[in-house]
């Protein structure tokens, strides 16, 4: 059954059909949540909540890119979580040491299984730390756009649908987000892999 058929069946209450759609988009949704929230546990919860909300609000899907619609659910859920965290900042019960901090910010053992050498894994970890640090400094509306376009590979129309903003707003936010990321990543030039350290750029 194709995606349209699964969506139609899910709208009629077929949970199995919806779970097929979950399988297709859960990696994308989870990675978007991780980049937006910068917290693995919160991203896990937000992804589950977003899919549950998507199933309950399938009647609001008016056609178009279902991937963008799912990303909209994830984005809105992450925004809600960010607002909640701003209202109620949470502190860990025990202070974390440097080692603990590294492990939490970069749980490399959860990365996609591959044949990467230890050196490559370290490079990936450094790259991810630098990117995540710079993304975290962006405003929420800039971060969601740059993550969806440059990290997750959505096109402008899908992003406009996901964030419910005009195409011009998406272009503007993306340009400004990229400039901020450029300026931020220049502080991590030594940490980035060699292929990203050419010329005077990043």
């Amino acid at each position: 059954m194709d995606e349209a058929g699964l969506i139609a069946a899910a709208r009629l209450g077929d949970l199995d059909a919806f779970n097929h759609l979950v399988m297709v988009y859960q990696s994308l949704a989870y990675n978007l949540a991780v980049r937006l929230l910068n917290d693995l546990d919160a991203a896990d919860d937000a992804t589950q909540t977003a899919f549950l909300s998507a199933f309950r609000h399938l009647d609001t899907y008016r056609g178009g890119s279902f991937r963008a619609w799912v990303m909209r659910m994830v984005t809105n859920t992450c925004y809600d979580e960010l607002r909640r965290l701003k209202r109620h900042p949470q502190q860990p019960l025990e202070p974390m040491g440097e080692d603990d901090n590294d492990e939490i910010e970069s749980p490399y053992w959860m990365a996609d299984e591959s044949q990467a050498t230890p050196e490559m894994q370290i490079e990936q970890r450094d790259l991810e730390n630098a990117i995540q640090h710079c993304l975290h400094d962006l405003p929420d509306e800039f971060r969601s756009v740059v993550v969806m376009v440059d990290v997750e590979g959505l096109d402008y129309e899908e992003v406009a649908q996901a964030v419910s903003k005009p195409l011009g707003t998406v272009k503007s936010r993306l340009s400004r987000a990229r400039l901020r990321m450029r300026d931020c990543l220049q502080g991590f030039t030594e940490l980035l892999p060699s292929i990203f350290r050419q010329d005077n750029g990043v």
Partner: peptide, 19 residues
């Protein structure tokens, strides 16, 4: 900058999000 962002390591979801 776009190249760096596009090479961001992807995370594997810790579980399936079946409903």
């Amino acid at each position: 900058t776009r190249l760096v962002l596009r090479n961001t390591p992807r995370r594997k979801p810790p579980r399936n999000y079946y409903l």
